[in-house]
């Protein structure tokens, strides 16, 4: 049982010397990052800086080329670790939502609960209803993803992740695929999650969210963490030239 190996004092996420190459292309060049429980860490940076790859390495959607990724003290790069088990503790939200189009909202929210957590249908639906309520979509249980707006789909995707009772949530540019008027509803849900103390690692272009909700901001460029610190500090008074250049382009 993996539960017994979890070190309650260990950081939620501990990335050590992470290197990732795609062929000859080294995307991550040695990343060290620790996220303690309850922290909301936002990652910004130009496209191609490796921020999404970093996030995807944290739940092993990308297999690291070098370095370690520890989740609550467990090194998930160890091939003997039951990664499926660890992943149930890590909620993941994608840019393109990735809801299951052949299942209605309730099906999307219950399938992993039933197939992975072995919950009964009744119990899974009870939890699903509670999570749908939490993202403000209680009345959409019977809808198919194709009938929902982008903002609603993303909120369902967040609810789907929450149904597994994760200890932490990863967000990969959760609002980048949304029409501007739909961004707010998703950020609102993420904000409420942060307020409830959820540990979050968020790759985003929403500087407002990073400033107001983030407890720490990381700026990545060229496969390195260039700068990190209090969001207000980094955004208001960046220390590195590359950070300044980037911020002057996006702010």
């Amino acid at each position: 049982m993996i539960t017994e190996l979890i070190d309650v004092h260990a950081p939620a996420i501990d990335v050590q010397g992470l290197v990732k190459s795609f062929g000859d292309n080294e995307v991550l060049k040695g990343i060290d990052l620790t996220v303690t429980k309850g922290e909301v860490v936002c990652v910004i940076g130009p496209s191609g800086s490796g921020k999404s790859t970093l996030l995807r390495s944290v739940n092993l959607l990308e297999e690291p080329t070098g370095g370690k990724v520890l989740i609550e003290g467990i090194d998930i790069t160890d091939p003997d670790v039951d990664i499926d088990r660890v992943r149930t503790r890590i909620g993941m939200v994608f840019q393109s939502f990735n809801l299951f189009p052949h299942l209605d909202v309730m099906g999307n929210l219950t399938i992993a609960q039933q197939r992975v957590k072995k919950r009964s249908k009744k119990e899974a639906e009870l939890i699903a209803h509670a999570m749908l309520d939490r993202v403000g979509l209680a009345e959409k249980a019977d809808a198919y993803p194709g009938h929902l707006s982008g903002g609603q789909q993303q909120r369902v995707a967040i609810a789907r992740a929450l149904c597994m009772n994760p200890d932490m949530m990863l967000f990969d540019e959760p609002t980048s695929a949304l029409d501007p008027e739909l961004v707010g509803e998703v950020l609102q849900v993420m904000r409420s999650l942060a307020d409830e103390g959820m540990t979050m690692l968020v790759v985003t272009h929403e500087m407002g969210f990073a400033r107001e909700v983030g407890s720490r901001l990381i700026f990545m460029d060229g496969g390195y963490i260039v700068e990190e610190g209090d969001p207000r500090e980094v955004l208001g008074n960046p220390q590195h030239q590359r950070t300044k250049d980037f911020l002057s382009r996006v702010l």
């Binding site: 992943r87 149930t88 393109s96 990735n98 299951f100 399938i111 992993a112 992975v116 992740a161």
Partner: peptide
């Protein structure tokens, strides 16, 4: 079937077999 579907299922802790069969 888009790769994102597999990634979403695996991220929820579903094994390769369950992902194939259910998703």
């Amino acid at each position: 079937v888009p790769k994102g579907q597999t990634e979403a299922a695996r991220s929820l802790g579903m094994s390769p077999m369950k992902t194939t069969f259910w998703i």
